[in-house]
Amino acid sequence: MRRRQIVAALALCATACAAQQPPARPRHKISAGELYEALSSRFPVRRGLAGMLALEISATQLLLRPDRNQLGAALLAELRGVRQLQAGEMDLVFSLRYEPSDQTVRARNPEILDVRWPGAPPEVLRALQGMLPRVAQDLGEFVLHRFTPRELALPQTMGFEPQELTVVEDGLLVFFGPKRSP
């Protein structure tokens, strides 16, 4: 008898908790693989330095930063024209936004988090640190994902549009919400 009362109380509690939850919103997940493909298409980037040196930057790995709600890339940077200087690494992250005019998710506001360049002479490191923010800004804003009509069909029939972009451990979750009036 006591067990039935406990089970009934738990069921009642679960029902009450479920009633207090906001209704589920449609969402769409963009995979880490798709994000890496879009991001890596922006690389390699090549820049001249002081007329004698050349910097080549390539994306080696996708960085998903749920703690900052940003994504980016671990980059490999090679400096040509300096003998026996091994490649350096840096982490670059972007903020995200949805662009309703062309139904895309875009990367913007690049930020260099860390530069690791073992064995680089101080003068070369200073020159690079002065140049890297400009290289990051040159990447500009770019498309990471373009929604297909199929991906938007159900949310649009419900009167929803992409509203919230959340970086997770294995990709990007796009939550839909009520369309905003123009």
Rank of each mutant, 00 (worst) to 15 (best):
Q70K: 09
A136V: 03
L63D: 04
K179E: 08
V167E: 11
E56V: 10
P23F: 02
A24K: 14
A14H: 01
R3W: 03
L49Y: 09
A19L: 13
S181E: 13
A107S: 01
L128W: 00
A50T: 12
Q20L: 14
Q61R: 08
R150D: 15
E34H: 05
Q84I: 02
E164H: 14
L76H: 09
R108W: 10
P178H: 12
P118W: 00
S41A: 14
Y36C: 07
R4T: 10
V93W: 05
E78G: 09
A153G: 05
L96S: 04
G140R: 00
G130A: 11
E37I: 08
R108H: 14
E151Y: 08
R25S: 14
A9G: 10
G88N: 00
L85M: 05
G177S: 13
W117H: 07
K29N: 04
S58T: 12
P66C: 07
Q70M: 14
R126C: 07
P133I: 06
G48S: 12
Q21K: 15
A11Y: 12
R25V: 13
A74G: 11
I57P: 07
V82T: 07
P122G: 09
D114R: 15
I57E: 12
L53Q: 00
A19P: 01
P66N: 13
Q5E: 15
Q129W: 02
S58N: 08
A18L: 04
R150E: 15
Q70H: 11
L55G: 04
R65Y: 06
A18G: 06
R65W: 10
L75W: 00
Q70N: 06
I57F: 13
S95F: 12
E37P: 03
A107D: 04
L172A: 08
V93H: 06
R2H: 14
E164Q: 15
D91K: 09
L132Y: 00
Q20D: 08
Q129I: 03
A127E: 11
P118Q: 07
E78Y: 01
L79C: 01
W117F: 06
R106L: 07
E78W: 10
E56S: 06
P122Q: 13
P44E: 01
G159Y: 01
H145Q: 06
R80Y: 11
V124E: 00
F160I: 12
A127M: 07
E34I: 03
R116Y: 08
L63E: 05
R25H: 08
V93N: 02
K29I: 13
N109P: 03
L35V: 10
F175C: 09
C13W: 10
T157F: 12
A107Y: 02
P155T: 01
N109M: 08
G72H: 13
E164S: 11
C17N: 09
A14N: 05
T148P: 06
A38W: 02
L53S: 06
N109K: 15
R83Q: 05
M158S: 07
I57R: 07
E164T: 15
A38D: 07
L132P: 03
G171H: 07
G88T: 04
G48A: 11
R46S: 15
Q103F: 00
A87Q: 04
L10V: 02
Q156R: 11
Y36H: 14
L128V: 10
L125W: 08
Y98A: 01
F175D: 15
A14C: 14
